[in-house]
Amino acid sequence: MTAVTARETAVPAADIRKRGRFLVAITILILSVWVLAPIYLLAINALSSPAQVNAFPKSLVPGMETESIAFFLGFAGVLRALGNSILVAGITMVLAIGLGAPAGYALSRFDFRGKDAFRIMVLMTRAFPLPLLALPLAVMFIRTGLDDTAFGLALVHTTLALPFAVLITFSLFSGIPVELEEAAWTLGCTRFQAFHKVVLPLVLPGIAASAVFAFVISWNEVFAAAVLTIQNRTLTAFLLQNINVSPMHLKFAGGAMLVLPALIFIFAVRRYLFAMWGIASR
């Protein structure tokens, strides 16, 4: 026993700590490579010519050719699908924030009967596989003429994004002290003026972040998009529909096209990611 302790103390504590830190750094590096490497491999494929994509064995550096991308963009229906994706995601974003932010504000500022019931309804949406909504809605949309339209699909995507928008804006508004609003009232503001002049400027960046989040949710959704659109395919629906028949280089260029905006958006809202989930997960 004594011998062991003696030997242990012989190694300076600083050394052990240094070794530990080195181990942690290596682990973090490995995990980062695990996340990044697959994206890099996709990028190689997207930036190689079709011939290079189908060649074997593959090289680990991209051919820096734009041929695959050009082929993809020139492929019949792609640009239209891209436009549809943006349109649907844009409508979703506006609807989710437009409907969600007032609810989030109400939840954060008022105590009223039925508040818990509403919260439960919002939380309940989490326990349901929401893309399945597309099935009954497909029928409903045919009746109302919303079938195969960007707006119809955006409505379904809004049910996906709305609960998030409510919870995120709830946490954003809760982060603004109520006293700021009250101070504005005592200084001559109506409720609306106080909201407009004090609350809105303070939450705007956060609202923008949650809007981006809503956009990404819609941009990435596959199942409902595939069920609800036929002529007006979104990019995800288009890729899914053609996945068994399209050549490899088309798939990879399409995949890259899907990933790129998402990467940029997540980067833009990264500061809010954790604040949003901190409350949204309660």
Partner: peptide, 20 residues
């Protein structure tokens, strides 16, 4: 009446100085 029509001014415990 709402606060704005009462001819009052108020100082809050946490000051409520508008951060923006």
């Amino acid at each position: 009446l709402p606060p704005r029509q009462r001819g009052i001014a108020m100082v809050f415990q946490n000051y409520a100085v508008f951060p923006h």
